[in-house]
Nucleic acid binder design. Structure first.
Lengths: 213, 213
DNA sequence: ACCTGAACACCGTTCAAGT
DNA sequence: ACCTGAACACCGTTCAAGT
């Protein structure tokens, strides 16, 4: 048997599946960026289920070029959402440092709901991803979930949030409310329904403080 | 101008878009029933997004025959769900007559969540329908919603449920939880997440009974 | 009256051929 | 190394032709 050659020292240990186009050919980098910019417009118009063919057409790029850069629809979505995801992870640190635990959690969840409403159908995609953990989006999504879990556990340690919910629970519940209110007559009730859901996360006060009456 | 001829007296005032195949030709009725039975199997396997072509194939029926009986996917869904919908409306009457208001509501919502889990993707379809009220499913769905609204308003009158939620709110929230838990690792947490959501529907006890501490 | 399936316009995905 | 678009296997929908 021939031993595997030792891995050459990688400058970037975790380049990621859709890493920034650094040392590619110039035309490739231009195409990558242009496809991404076009996809943002098309998905904003038609939602996450937009035709990838249409994206390629409007980017004036061969269909195979799109698939070369983004082998799956989720890879394209991941590239589109990475910035917003990173921003939300940073925000969780900021809120944890500046706000009391419960307020930090609820404010972050409201931002998460707003972010999940970026594209039609995005909330459903985010929930669906939890089925196959190997997808491109799953990695970014897990980072987001663990950021939320940190805020949740702080609020739970404070006794502000019921102890029998997990980070995944609050993540999917928030995303679900975002999904409901992304269009139609429910759109104006987003904040309200989010508030109802957040109220469900509070510990039952009757048991906590004992019977009042 | 010629006046519209007066409408002939209809024996059935509300036959519905997918009425029972009464006085059709024998082969048509057989096809209708057979397509329906096949669709139930295929949708149980593949969810509401199953290929209608596949349904026609497995029913050994021309593709046009399927479209003749069910002009849209929603018409097919409506025919499939009508029985379960009717059962849920009846159940709301039974519960209203036999259980205290709050228990009647929560039990009915749990049944609704279970029913919405019949097919993969069904909860999402039920929520999406509220956008276009002219769809075949919308009519049946509205009946279901108003049944839930009756139970809700009873519980609200009793002070058991916060007054600032509507029947549509609880309907979509319940359906959303059903959507989350229809598959994947969340499936076992359906009852629990439903409980969290239902807790959110209770009036805030701190304000209600005054400060405890 | 009803059934049939070819025809049309799409879609996602792959891959041999080009530069 | 990368781009291109034809080719393939699907899909939903319609409709002229049959019985």
């Amino acid at each position: 048997m021939i031993a595997e050659p030792p891995e050459p020292p990688e400058p970037r240990p975790v380049p990621g599946p859709a890493s920034a186009p650094r040392d590619r050919r110039a035309d490739a980098r231009r195409n990558y960026e242009h496809i991404l910019a076009t996809a943002q417009v098309v998905l904003a118009e038609q939602g996450v289920q937009a035709s990838l063919r249409d994206v390629a057409r409007r980017a004036e790029v061969g269909l195979g070029t799109l698939y070369r850069h983004f082998p799956t629809r989720e890879a394209l979505l991941e590239a589109l959402l990475r910035q917003g995801f990173d921003r939300l992870v940073e925000l969780s640190d900021t809120l944890a440092a500046t706000r009391p635990p419960a307020a930090a959690l609820t404010e972050w969840l409201r931002e998460l709901a707003a972010g999940a409403g970026t594209y039609q159908g995005l909330p459903a995609s985010l929930v669906a991803i939890m089925d196959d953990p190997d997808s491109a989006l799953a990695v970014s999504c897990a980072a987001l979930r663990s950021a939320g879990t940190r805020l949740l556990e702080r609020a739970q340690a404070d006794g502000e949030i019921r102890p029998d919910v997990t980070g995944t629970d609050v993540f999917v519940l928030t995303t679900a409310v975002a999904a409901l209110t992304e269009r139609g007559p429910l759109a104006q009730r987003r904040d309200h329904l989010l508030g109802v859901m957040l109220d469900g996360l509070r510990p039952a006060p009757r048991e906590l403080f004992g019977p009042c009456s």
